[in-house]
């Protein structure tokens, strides 16, 4: 039994899979509440499928890139569950999870909100394999007329005129690509892509 979740966008999405069968799924789109929504979501899918937590044999988590605070909620949850249950936790790039639900029959890109007027971005071939990225970029530098999934087109419509579904990652897609072996598996480690915002303090200001 696989528990899959992603908290690297405004969606908090959780799914429980038995092989490629999705037994239960819960997705709530609400920014800034990952810490509140994830654990109840996990509890909900386990209850809905009447599965005991001890029956899990793997955890899969979206490791971003995405806003750090939400991203960490998912990663620390996956690592803690894995520790307690003695099962492996695997990571998958969140943009790959979005890409897994794209059905366009041509090359496309995924762009999600990185705030500060930037996007988390990756490009995919017709076969759905990632060919460039993930990277954090100014949207103008990756503007394209081709299909773009993720929230990018909603935020930067002039630069990404052809919006395609989905806008957010789904945990069932994450579970499916992990179970079928088509996902590139990573460690349960955040893809921050940005260094922490820090500036050394200036010398003490004179007061007189």
């Amino acid at each position: 039994m696989l528990l899959a979740f992603d908290t690297a966008t405004s969606a908090v999405t959780v799914a429980l899979l038995d092989g490629v069968d999705v037994l239960a799924e819960s997705t709530v789109v609400e920014p800034m509440r990952h810490g509140e929504l994830l654990a109840p979501g996990i509890d909900r899918v386990l209850a809905a499928a009447d599965v005991a937590v001890g029956d899990l044999d793997r955890v899969a988590v979206g490791v971003g890139p995405g806003p750090f605070t939400g991203l960490r909620v998912g990663v620390v949850t996956a690592r803690t569950l894995a520790m307690v249950l003695g099962i492996p936790a695997v990571g998958v790039c969140t943009l790959d999870i979005v890409a897994a639900d794209v059905v366009v029959g041509e090359a496309f890109a995924v762009a999600t909100d990185a705030r500060r007027k930037e996007v988390y971005w990756a490009r995919y071939g017709r076969d759905g394999r990632r060919t460039e990225g993930p990277a954090v970029v100014k949207p103008a530098t990756v503007a394209m007329d081709g299909p773009v999934a993720g929230q990018g087109p909603q935020l930067y419509g002039e630069l990404f005129p052809r919006a395609v579904e989905p806008r957010f990652p789904s945990a069932s897609a994450l579970g499916r690509i992990v179970e079928t072996g088509s996902a590139e598996l990573l460690a349960a480690e955040p893809l921050y892509l940005r260094r922490p915002d820090v500036s050394p303090p200036s010398a003490p200001k004179p007061v007189s």
Partner: peptide, 19 residues
């Protein structure tokens, strides 16, 4: 906030997995 959330999320995962 960001620091608190790491501990809170881990504690919730413990509570859920330990029941």
């Amino acid at each position: 906030t960001g620091a608190l959330l790491v501990g809170v999320a881990s504690a919730k995962a413990l509570a859920v997995s330990l029941g």
